[in-house]
Write a protein that binds this DNA or RNA. Structure first.
Lengths: 189, 189
DNA sequence: ATTATTTATGAACAAACTGTTGATTTTATA
DNA sequence: TATAAAATCAACAGTTTGTTCATAAATAAT
């Protein structure tokens, strides 16, 4: 086919641009990073950048989307045992994924990272939780608030874990998050 | 004294710059806001801006610091009854403050806002919690993680509350947060 | 009320980044 | 090898930045 081959060159260009960008993101905020800078670091012509991306923020968005897709593919490969601990297994797999891709994740999931993106990652798990919650008859009136609490809390834990150099096992972390969530929830059943 | 009077003009300059900046922050991300733009909106010479602030980020930092100071002053005026529900009262007062200053808070406490600043606001309360936690002999090993969870979760709830137009009473919100935190904690005592 | 001091203004500056264009060269594949 | 796609290069006007300095305005002190 045509497109597959055309993409070879494009793929290289996009790859080096992304790498250069992630490298820069480690040392400074996205707002301080110029397109000129990204291109110099990647040794790619600036006009070529504009052929693929609108600006830094567009580049970031594309990187994030690819990560979400990748996580979903990763989780799809994993078949869950139907023994009631699906949430735990799913959560552990997410921690596994983050660990395997800690370089990118440390940047994208950091505090300065895009919150909506982080929420999207977490929602992969929380979807599962929500159904469990409704099964448990959680007070629907405040369910939204509890959801905000749990999601943001979980992101906070992941961020700390990454900051601390992933000092605990993925299983330990998955258990920690689910324990907190379930317990906190139980006050409103 | 000298400085008190000199500040009259400076105070006005800083005030209009801040107002202009907050107004702009409502419609776009800080990274898209130019100093030129802030000055035009405030009708202040650009050279004057540089006399007071390094850039937009410096301006934001100063606004945040003033808010933290203001919250602390606000809380200092409030004398707490020593009946064991200090945390609840303190938390409610914070919600009260946010409500009274919802215009600025909606911007500064939003998702796009500075996370370190938000943590600082919350830490005013959490300090109190921490002492209660250690009294309860929470597993110190994971206390840090629980703290991350609780703080980020609480911020998430506040953000949702502001987004929803402060649809619930401050007391209700304070109770919600403390209930979640205490309950989640109880799994690790 | 007048003088002295502080602060704000306006204009000008080089430097950097932006976003776009069109002509040209490189690269991949058919 | 021919052809189509992609990357490069140079040039462009337009904007923002950060700084400087002379001048004007506002404020404080005498």
């Amino acid at each position: 086919m045509k497109n597959d081959k055309v993409n070879r060159k494009i793929k290289y260009t996009k790859m080096v641009l992304k790498e250069s960008f992630i490298r820069l993101l480690k040392s400074k905020d996205i707002s301080r990073i110029t397109i000129t800078e990204i291109c110099e670091e990647a040794d790619i012509n600036r006009a070529t950048f504009y052929a693929h991306y609108k600006d830094q923020y567009d580049l970031l968005k594309q990187i994030e989307q690819e990560l979400v897709d990748d996580i979903n593919r990763y989780l799809a490969n994993y078949s869950f045992h139907e023994n009631g601990s699906e949430s735990l297994q799913l959560m552990e797999q997410i921690f596994e994924y983050i660990k395997e891709n800690s370089e990118v994740c440390s940047v994208l999931l950091s505090e300065s990272g895009d919150k909506n993106f982080q929420r999207e990652v977490l929602s992969i798990v929380q979807h599962q939780c929500i159904t469990e919650w409704t099964r448990k008859n959680v007070n629907k009136d405040i369910a939204e608030y509890l959801y905000s609490y749990a999601t943001n809390g979980s992101i906070g834990i992941i961020q700390r874990w990454l900051r601390e150099g992933m000092d605990r096992s993925t299983m330990e972390m998955a258990e920690l998050i689910l324990k907190m969530t379930d317990q906190g929830l139980s006050a409103f059943v």
